[in-house]
Design a protein around this nucleic acid. Structure first.
Lengths: 128, 128
DNA sequence: TTGCAATAGAGAAGCCTTTCGCTACAATGC
DNA sequence: GCATTGTAGCGAAAGGCTTCTCTATTGCAA
């Protein structure tokens, strides 16, 4: 059931990953401060979560500096791709397009993004 | 953290939902047989899972027939929308388009689907 | 160097999910 | 009617996630 690094992140883990994506490489303290904006939590809990995530290879750590610096083990886009594939597989049995349409229908996109999407569609058509 | 019916399904729960979407309203036995194709599991476990899911309102049950018949409490598309929003929120902080592009990039779509996507893009552009 | 505050880690408790074993009930065939 | 098979439910065990408390270590400043 696990397949990302070695594990799919849980809810809190994902929250921490997002913080690392936003902030870039960060100390426990920095992650913790952000985490606390959303919800009360203990500093030690953040330490532990990062330790657990290190074990699962969801994050990497630079031991050469003090305080230790953590960073996400994979990029946001890479994670999105993984979760998306997972979702597509689980819900639609592999039909990416169905899901893409749902996402498109959610609306709100810049002109550039719309153009980018059109380009992709053209490419797909050519390939057929 | 829960917000679908009253709960987000876990991995096994989702697997069962998918079976119900594929099969339509089904008895425990029918669900169980399908579930077993993928992995060894006890009949009692399936019964329990469905009971738990009934409690979470992920499935509904027709008590008027024997054996009891279960069906998914929400449609596949409805579920996809919910999970997708969740994913978008969690990974991209609300940018649906970024995710849609990822899904599109996964490729494999029929001419009809591509046309449908183009229509959506046109609509979105008009709205701006 | 000594003391203080911040940082790091270990271990265990609490909760939820998933699984199982046991028991009871319903339906079917003899 | 009675035995056999399939169906339903309960309670608890196993395992994982998340959190805590307590302890050790580090870095800085007086």
């Amino acid at each position: 059931m696990r397949e990302l690094g070695s594990s799919q992140p849980t809810a809190v883990e994902l929250e921490i990953l997002r913080i690392l994506w936003d902030l870039g490489p960060s100390t426990v303290r920095e992650v913790h401060l952000r985490l606390c904006e959303g919800k009360e939590t203990n500093y030690s809990t953040t330490v532990k979560m990062l330790a657990v995530m290190l074990g699962k290879e969801l994050v990497k750590r630079d031991d050469s500096v003090r305080p230790l610096v953590y960073r996400a083990a994979m990029t946001r886009d890479r994670a999105a791709k993984t979760f998306l594939s997972d979702l597509i597989e689980k819900i639609y049995d592999g039909s990416a397009m169905t899901l893409a349409l749902q996402a498109l229908a959610k609306g709100k996109a810049s002109k550039e993004e719309i153009e980018e999407a059109r380009r992709l569609l053209d490419e797909m058509e050519d390939k057929q």
